[in-house]
Design a protein around this nucleic acid. Sequence first.
RNA 1: CGGGGUAUAGCGCAGUCUGGUAGCGCACUUGGUUUGGGACCAAGGUGUCGGGGGUUCGAAUCCCUCUACCCCGACCA
Length: 417
Amino acid sequence: MRISRFLLATLKENPADAEVISHQLMLRAGMIRRLAAGLYTWLPLGLRVLRKVENIVRDEMNKSGAQEILMPAVQPAELWQQSGRWDQYGPELLRFKDRHDREFCYGPTHEEIITNLIRNEIRSYKQLPVNLYQIQTKFRDEIRPRFGIMRGREFLMKDSYSFHLEQSSLDETYELMYETYTKIFNRLGLKFRAVLADNGNIGGSRSHEFHVLAESGEDAIAYSTTGDYAANVEVAGDVKVGDPSPDGKSVLDIARGIEVGHIFQLGDKYAKAMGASVLDEAGKSTTLIMGCYGIGVSRLVAATIEQNHDKNGIIWPEAIAPFSVALLPMNMHKSQRLRDAAEDLYNKLQAAGIDVLFDDRKERPGVMFANAELMGIPHRIVIGDRGLDKSEVEYKGRLDEKSQNIPIDKIIEFIVG
RNA sequence: CGGGGUAUAGCGCAGUCUGGUAGCGCACUUGGUUUGGGACCAAGGUGUCGGGGGUUCGAAUCCCUCUACCCCGACCA
């Protein structure tokens, strides 16, 4: 991509209403723009990151054997009345009527819809277990949206739902999802922790939350300093630093976290209320049991920035960087030789399948450096007349202290390798 | 929903107390000089001063009212 044709929307100054660093940097780097409270437009730079996160989530879900579907965002009230949540959910549920005066809501979650699907489609125990997921925009009319995309009202979520005949099968899928989530957050390069969690108003029995560790996190998590125990303080109760750990190992410490994933065992709550059952081996009708598993895809983008930034801007992990390489020519307008060499390298980088952002503007070097760093591009290639005399370009990783000179015909393998 | 605050150019702000018809920085446009860390000079465009109502000869400024947004608390991926 040439910057001259890219909707670059960087800001020098911090917008006044951005409180946390990820919100500030997402605005300054030109990733998002606010439309109304908790509602954001994803600009090209931001959407590139969001899509990469989404694809990692999708890839690992597929590898786990889950199947992708897409359910309607708009849901009829009747299903919510069947589960009992139409009256329980409260004003967080955005409700409205269509032209025929029928009641609907914009889905904040999809237990009712998936249970309705399964009760119509699944007849036999032989079709179980099944795990279906979608990646979709949700809406929750939060009391107080804040921190930009971190707690928006509209957000992108991966939600999956598994159905089983027996608890042992649910346990297996639950463990599989636990492992899948671990793989996903590892691929994203995040420091995170899985903790015992409260079930909230989704209901059910067993649940774990996955928290990205960050000072700005809205949750407090208590964990054993040497053991495996870790729990949301909501669950751990009235604990403080230094208390003995419930697992008997060492003592508790408390850290702050951003909840980016949550896995639940729901039991038969929805299947029972909505009549989802199959015939078992003995030909007897049996109510299904269910698990559900969520990941805040858009929130992950913000959480990643909370964990990866410096005074110059964002530091994207390679896996989700909007561009892998920033190609910065120094005063290209003054040298045809340099222009030719830069264009040639740009084409070769693209041909090698590298996401490259070519700064073809007539800008001063400092502006190019500052923009590339703000946007958090992992690799920087500076190409100038000085280096061309020796057939070299200058390379610097986003986290490197110093740059190094690399022969121009070796730079691609240097970056790929 | 309770408590606190803000609203003036795309962004950041001053001007409001003490009414006189809107300004600064960044960004943007044009020309020139620059060019290895967010350049400089010159010229230029930019506003329903959040909306409505009122007071006044005159309102960004005073009064009433509505709205939006932000921060602190309870909910959540």
